[in-house]
């Protein structure tokens, strides 16, 4: 009974969020997709540049890889999984920040919470909706990455099941954990918007520097499992944390 009630509450929030994405945010939604595409190009371009620079060094690993197209294709595909999913936290946080802010300033939260719904349930519904929309965009970006890498290096990249799993499950789950943490801050802390924007900027710069320094990356199954488990635990902890927050704090009255 309680579970059915929870499912209905979450489903209602998810449906409402999607309706708002499609109606309120047509332009910003389109712009964000465009920005995501640009970001892919920017990072792939930087990556390609970093690889070429590294390859020019005598006896570098990159130079030996470039000599063997198959090895290079595999290594590039390994790096790919870090690029596409990067869109996810940016996109999801934009959607969530708008939703939180709009409901807070249009005084919708107080009537919503007066139904007795737990704030954690509303938060989770919003997170699911934002993640789903972002995941769809991310999938588009991963496809785009493949195209761009092929275009830059003239390679056809063979995607192994491990890589697909990494790009479409492990990394998005890790990003979900990050999004959940920021969404928690957004609800718990009224002045979080600036920090969130700044955190996203730092994140992007960090990943960019990381990829530039180590153009060839691989993640083993053990690390991937730990990453997924920790990320899901983080989501659960954030949802629990939100459910403990006072409604006064969230509504900001």
């Amino acid at each position: 009974m309680l579970r059915r009630r929870l499912v209905r509450q979450i489903a209602a929030v998810v449906q409402k969020e999607f309706r708002e994405y499609l109606r309120v945010q047509k332009i910003s939604f389109g712009l964000t997709v465009g920005y995501s595409v640009f970001m892919q190009w920017f990072i792939v371009h930087s990556y390609a540049h970093a690889v070429k620079m590294a390859a020019s060094l005598p006896e570098s690993k990159a130079a030996s890889m470039l000599a063997d197209p198959e090895v290079f294709a595999a290594a590039t595909a390994g790096t790919l999984m870090f690029i596409g999913p990067l869109v996810l936290p940016f996109f999801a946080n934009s959607l969530l920040a708008r939703s939180f802010m709009e409901e807070r300033y249009k005084h919708v939260l107080a009537p919503m919470f007066s139904t007795g719904v737990n704030p954690g349930v509303v938060w989770l519904g919003k997170l699911i909706a934002a993640f789903t929309a972002s995941y769809a965009t991310m999938t588009l970006c991963v496809g785009l990455d493949l195209g761009l890498l092929t275009m830059y290096f003239g390679l056809s990249i063979a995607l192994t099941p491990g890589l697909v799993l990494m790009a479409l499950f492990v990394m998005p789950t890790a990003c979900l954990g990050m999004v959940a943490l920021i969404a928690y801050l957004n609800w718990a802390w009224q002045q979080a918007t600036f920090v969130i924007s700044f955190a996203m900027f730092l994140l992007m710069m960090g990943v960019f520097s990381f990829l530039s320094a180590r153009p060839v990356l691989t993640i083993g199954p053990g690390f991937a499992t730990i990453l997924v488990v920790l990320s899901l635990l983080l989501v659960g902890a954030c949802a629990f944390g939100v459910s403990l927050l006072s409604r006064q704090r969230i509504v900001n009255v």
């Binding site: 059915r4 009630r5 209905r8 509450q9 489903a11 209602a12 929030v13 449906q15 409402k16 309706r19 708002e20 109606r23 309120v24 249009k106 005084h107 919708v108 939260l109 107080a110 009537p111 919503m112 139904t115 007795g116 719904v117 509303v122």
Partner: peptide, 23 residues
């Protein structure tokens, strides 16, 4: 405190969902 992008029916359906009503 209404969701301006929704219709009246959709808004009430959403609140019905929060109250645990079936769709």
């Amino acid at each position: 405190g209404l969701h301006g992008a929704l219709t009246a029916t959709e808004h009430l359906e959403f609140f019905g969902g929060l109250l645990g009503l079936s769709r």
